[in-house]
Design a protein around this nucleic acid. Structure first.
Lengths: 232, 232
DNA sequence: TGTCACCGTGACGAATCCGTCACGCTTGTT
DNA sequence: AACAAGCGTGACGGATTCGTCACGGTGACA
């Protein structure tokens, strides 16, 4: 289904991953330390890149930066793999703008889930500047929300939270997903923080706050059309 | 060049405007109080709408809200015309999300300039989620700036300011334009505030702050390629 | 060279925003 | 009905952000 580039030197891991991915219907391309073929592979426009930071003789971070600096590759989502020790040193320190990261050891299943999640997220982003959902209209350019035609001011977090919810109004967004999408990684924010922001958002929306529905035990969902409330 | 819808009851003003616009190569369509034809005209997808708030028997604000609430018309930029007295009452109060507004009396020339400015601004917005300019990469989705591949955190205003500058890196952005684009109308912010934010932005950019160039007496400009500095 | 408008800069106070916590209600289960 | 887990809510302190001002430097122009 999707073309996936894997940059990983440990051949057993690479093989395991690609086997797993190919079985799921994806097309995995593996590169070890033979990085000279990378431009050729990039020319095939992979949809997502899995990059191990621990490569022999070369800093994976350099590769990552180069990917981001090049117009043709800057928009390709990257999932980063690291060994345990590196995490706090490198990743946690700099907000590197990867789409996800995994620390070894991990199960192929987990990586696959992450890849699916990233792909799902990215593909949603047709990124029109305006999102219309019933009474709501999100204006990304001016970071404003129009409710029934009147403008509402949202804070950065509120806007991002609502955007995330509205971008996929059929899905239920788990607490973990929301925390990651809105706050990013290194997000050591308490899970109750999410509740607080949901509350503040609902407050600003007034009665329309009901469109943000709690899915008990899972997360939250934006419902464009409210389910009819049957009176007693 | 562009199709422009004018909703204005005072026929002399409407005529004056449309004459002026047609002479400039635009296609102006005027509607007075015969609003029943409006849907038909909207179906022709005008690129911009000029709306007088003072219409006999009908509140122009209602029309505006209806335009904004309808998916098909929500993205059409609107320039609002008002008489002097209304401004403080209506406009200043609600952040209505118009693209510009003018108070009567005004010169047709001024309106034409505003229309041009709005059209120029809107057309720039192909709104890809990422803007690449030399060493800079703006990530709208995550509101982040990548400089040489490393992420920089900007505040809301800083991000919007830089975005505005970068979206049109050939143009010089006047102080008034920047104030309007970043702060919106009702922006009673002092003009020095802009300087302060420019400074803070340059500070965060470090040496790369030189890409924001001061055009003395006019405003600022983002230059993707720095003009070579000749040493003495 | 002198003058003046324009701009850069640092400091400051106010306002906003944000994360956390404690408490209590709700929901679902036994 | 009793209990526990999940969630809503209000309050609080800290951090960030923002707008303003005063001062000094710089460039333009006569």
């Amino acid at each position: 289904m999707s073309k996936i580039l894997i940059v990983e030197d440990e051949s057993d891991i690479a093989e395991l991953i690609s086997l797993h991915l190919n079985r799921e219907g994806h097309e995995a391309i593996c590169i070890g330390n033979g990085l000279q073929v990378m431009p050729a592979v990039l020319a095939q426009q992979p949809e997502i890149i899995v990059l191990d930071l621990m490569l022999p003789g070369l800093d994976g971070m350099q590769i990552f930066k180069r990917l981001r600096a090049d117009t043709r590759t800057a928009s390709i989502p990257v999932i980063i793999l690291t060994a345990k020790g590196q995490v706090t040193d490198k990743i946690a320190g700099l907000e590197l703008g990867a789409d996800d990261y995994l620390t070894k050891p991990f199960s192929p299943r987990e990586l696959y889930l992450r890849i699916s999640a990233v792909l799902r997220r990215v593909k949603k982003v047709t990124h029109v500047s305006e999102i219309q959902r019933g009474r709501f209209m999100l204006d990304r350019k001016n970071m404003k929300l129009f409710l029934d035609g009147t403008a509402l001011d949202l804070t950065t977090i509120e806007f991002k939270l609502l955007t995330t919810l509205m971008e996929n109004d059929t899905a239920v967004h788990s607490r973990a997903d929301l925390l990651r999408d809105v706050w990013g990684y290194n997000s050591d924010v308490a899970t109750r923080t999410l509740d607080t922001h949901i509350k503040r958002l609902r407050e600003k929306l007034g009665a329309a706050g009901e469109h943000i529905v709690t899915i008990r035990g899972t997360g939250f969902q934006f419902q464009t059309e409210l389910a009819a409330t049957q009176p007693a």
